[in-house]
């Protein structure tokens, strides 16, 4: 029992070390490559464009639901005027970074893991190596650094749309005074809340895109089956582990910022 636990712990530490080494070497190798800006912009475009519609949609509906739930909870205490504060703080501190990250993982992360897995199976990654191009720097580095921009940017869009959604249900539908709603939003949101939200978004970006890249890139070593099944296993595990990591990291970061 103890031996099994020890082996499990050692395996986890080894995996974590390998993962960290993969992220660091991908970033450094990318920084040594040519046409870095072009690759980074392409990665930002890929991640941003791919995820923007779903972020807009989910952000708006999250705000709409929060407005609805928030109103009927607050009205019991005669505090419906605090709806703006409740919606904006919940979104900026918690739901915005977490839900946006989960959406990006579902949309771009799974695609990234699958794409890298297919490239591994199809020997495209080996081909890069034989051409003298460092593969993880070429394929992973730009995406990791693109995540540093895309996650906070998409989280900001999510937050704004969510707060607007809260306004639509709270003020337009349920007659909370619009001036009060917006005044409470501006009063209650402190720079610390915004900073905390962005720190979360940045952390989630590195962790999740890192996990998805790592899983896809190492499909040949990490998946239990070869070929198509291996790719689908890598994509599934990438999404599952990314989602778990988002929630775990959220708890850790929140405990620091509260």
């Amino acid at each position: 029992m103890v031996r099994t636990a020890g082996r499990f712990a050692l395996g986890g530490i080894r995996e974590l070390g390998e993962f960290t080494g993969f992220l660091v070497s991908s970033t450094f190798c990318y920084l040594r490559q040519r046409k870095r800006m072009e690759k980074w912009l392409r990665a930002v475009h890929e991640m941003g464009v791919r995820c923007l519609p779903i972020i807009l949609f989910v952000g708006l509906f999250t705000g709409l639901v929060l407005g609805l739930q928030g109103y009927y909870t607050l009205v019991k205490f005669g505090s419906e005027s605090a709806l703006g504060a409740a919606v904006s703080l919940i979104l900026i501190r918690e739901l915005g970074p977490v839900l946006a990250a989960l959406m990006i993982v579902g949309k771009a992360g799974s695609a990234l893991a699958s794409e890298l897995g297919i490239q591994r199976n199809d020997e495209q990654i080996d081909a890069l190596q034989t051409m003298g191009i460092q593969p993880s720097g070429f394929l992973v580095g730009p995406r990791l650094l693109a995540a540093l921009f895309c996650f906070p940017a998409l989280t900001a869009v999510f937050d704004l749309l969510g707060i607007f959604g809260g306004y639509l249900t709270g003020s337009v539908l349920l007659n909370v005074d619009a001036g009060v709603y917006w005044a409470r939003v501006f009063e209650s949101v402190q720079p610390k809340d915004v900073t905390g939200g962005f720190v979360k978004a940045l952390t989630f970006g590195v962790i999740t895109i890192g996990i998805c890249s790592y899983r896809g890139y190492n499909t040949h070593r990490k998946a239990s089956a070869p070929g198509v099944r291996g790719v689908s296993e890598s994509a599934t595990r990438a999404v599952v582990w990314s989602s778990i990591s988002i929630l775990a990291a959220d708890y850790v970061i929140t405990s620091f910022f509260l």
Partner: peptide, 26 residues
Amino acid sequence: SFMFQSNALFDSLTAFENIALPLREV
């Protein structure tokens, strides 16, 4: 250089871009 059994061409690049890749990067 190495020519792979599966060709190992990049699906997202055109034939021109595939051929130009090592020249552009190296």
